[in-house]
Simulated scan of single mutants.
Amino acid sequence: MVPEPLLPESGRRVYVALGDSFTEGVGDNSRRLPNGVRGWADRVAEKLAKAEPGWEYANLAVRSKRLRHIVADQLEPALAMEPALVTLYAGGNDILDFGTDVNVLLAEYEDLVAKLASTGAVLVLFTGYDVKVSAVLEPLKKRNAIYNQRVRELAMKYNAVLVDFWCFEAYHDPRMWAPDRLHMSKAGHKYMAAKVLDHLGVPHKITPKDWGPPDRLTLRDWERRQRRWMKDWVLPLFKRKLRGVTLGDSLQPRWPEPVRVPPKGGLKKLADQLVDQA
């Protein structure tokens, strides 16, 4: 059953997306768009504009950012935009940091949620997915479960829309994930966009990828993929951690100011227009 629309049909219609790589769109590559990615939030903005022309969109998310960075860099700009819709995923990178105190993290997360909810905007929160990357990360599973339960409680407390990513069985398929196995693939981002739009009661025609069963790998193929994954993704990640740098250090938000989303052609058309004007 599709819920009743939650969003305003008139007045100021600004959608602001906050967070890290999940919301920035990492894993869904697009050369024509800022930072070289598209992602589920762009797709949500485009469907909003198609359903009700006049929506504006800002995406302040930057990959690798921790909760403290999101509060410091994204909260005040978001509040200044007087949004009608806010989506927030924050804290996932903190959970992967072994020294994180989850109770302190969740207290800071609630403070952020409370400030966003006080705007009167429709607020969308997400649980985190239990990504099966490596047995090394299994000790973090309990921390992730605590985080998710608290997000569910805060969604009820602050009357937010909950997108319970943890429960989406479609993501059991490895094709929903990018080669790094931590970020969603294009198919994963499209599916997430559809879920968000469904929760908001916004019409769309995004359909799940109609795949057959995944190919069965031989032991040799599996070992080859494991070696490639370690070389291409895991070792560079640990090297960055040792150097104290992240992939987001030199990046700016993709859409730092609200842009009017064209009902036809979407954000790719807008990006092309901005290039022509430069």
Rank of each mutant, 00 (worst) to 15 (best):
L6Q: 14
E223P: 01
R181Y: 08
H199A: 14
W255K: 08
V275G: 00
A155F: 13
L7C: 11
V122D: 06
N159L: 13
G91I: 04
M81P: 01
L75S: 01
D28K: 11
S185K: 04
E108N: 12
H199V: 01
H189W: 10
P208L: 02
W166G: 06
P253R: 07
R38L: 05
Y15Q: 10
Q74W: 03
R152M: 10
V16S: 09
M184E: 08
A160C: 03
P262D: 15
L137V: 11
P34F: 10
S21E: 14
P83Y: 14
F238C: 04
L60Q: 03
I146E: 12
L112C: 10
D73K: 15
G201C: 05
A45T: 00
L116T: 03
D276H: 13
Y191S: 02
Y89M: 10
D276F: 02
P83S: 05
G92Q: 01
S185Q: 12
W55S: 08
A278L: 14
P258N: 13
W255F: 04
E82Y: 05
A84I: 05
I95F: 01
D232A: 10
W229Q: 01
V104R: 15
I70H: 02
F165C: 07
V275L: 15
L242N: 05
G39R: 06
Q252L: 14
D215A: 15
R175I: 09
P236S: 06
L274M: 15
L154D: 00
D210P: 06
P83C: 11
A78M: 08
V37D: 10
A145P: 00
P236W: 13
F238P: 00
L112K: 04
N93M: 10
A51P: 00
K115H: 11
V259G: 03
L137Q: 13
D130A: 14
K241N: 01
R32N: 13
K132T: 13
L137G: 05
P208A: 06
V113F: 01
W166F: 00
E82L: 11
V131Y: 04
S185I: 02
E153S: 15
F165N: 06
G92R: 03
L33W: 03
P174R: 13
K239Q: 14
H189A: 08
L270S: 07
E24W: 09
W40S: 07
K195H: 11
E223G: 14
K209Q: 06
G266N: 06
R38I: 07
L125G: 08
H204K: 10
D28Q: 07
Y89L: 14
S64I: 00
D276N: 13
L125T: 02
L18I: 08
P34T: 03
R150S: 05
R224H: 13
Y147T: 02
G92H: 07
A194V: 05
V261W: 03
E257V: 06
T207Y: 09
D249V: 09
D272T: 08
H172R: 15
L274P: 02
V131L: 13
E9H: 12
R143K: 12
A135I: 07
G25W: 02
K231C: 07
R13L: 09
T207M: 14
D198V: 09
G128D: 12
P53V: 12
W211I: 00
P213S: 07
T127W: 09
R143E: 11
A121F: 05
T87I: 10
V26S: 09
L116W: 08
G25S: 07
R240F: 02
